[in-house]
């Protein structure tokens, strides 16, 4: 059973190798002549005003929290989708109830303006 995942491990190792190899390739052959102006972060040619790493707009976190909530819903749907033929009408009814409950949450978030940007 787990044997099917072995080839995936092999290709993963190969992919990691490719990624590291390309980075090493670039840093081996490229010239290195750093300078103060050259290394400063790009902000359309101006000296950046204020740090770039700082507290960012809270709306992005809101989206992340909502995502976790609804992604779990999707995950619950996966096994159900496979066996929906076998479990028939009861399974279908239960899942519809589950989805409806979550849909209420979705509508609540919508109504509250969590999906808006201003």
């Amino acid at each position: 059973m787990l044997m099917e995942f072995l080839p995936l491990l092999i290709i993963l190792l190969l992919a990691v190798f490719i990624g590291v190899f390309v980075v090493v390739l670039g840093s081996t052959f490229g010239p290195k002549r750093p300078g103060q102006r050259k290394n400063s972060p790009y902000e359309s040619g101006m000296v950046p005003y204020g740090p770039a790493k700082r507290r960012i707009s809270v709306r992005y976190y809101l989206i992340a929290v909502l995502f976790i909530l609804f992604d779990i819903e999707v995950v619950f749907l996966v096994p159900w989708a496979v066996v929906v033929r076998q479990i028939g009408v009861p399974g279908l009814v239960f899942m519809i109830i589950f989805v409806l409950i979550l849909e209420v949450a979705h509508l609540y978030a919508w109504k509250k303006g969590a999906l808006e940007w201003d």
Binding site: E43, M46, Y49, A52, R54, R55, I56, S57
Partner: peptide, 8 residues
């Protein structure tokens, strides 16, 4: 929220 100055 904190706002950022950006040069375009």
């Amino acid at each position: 929220t904190e706002s950022i100055v950006i040069n375009l």
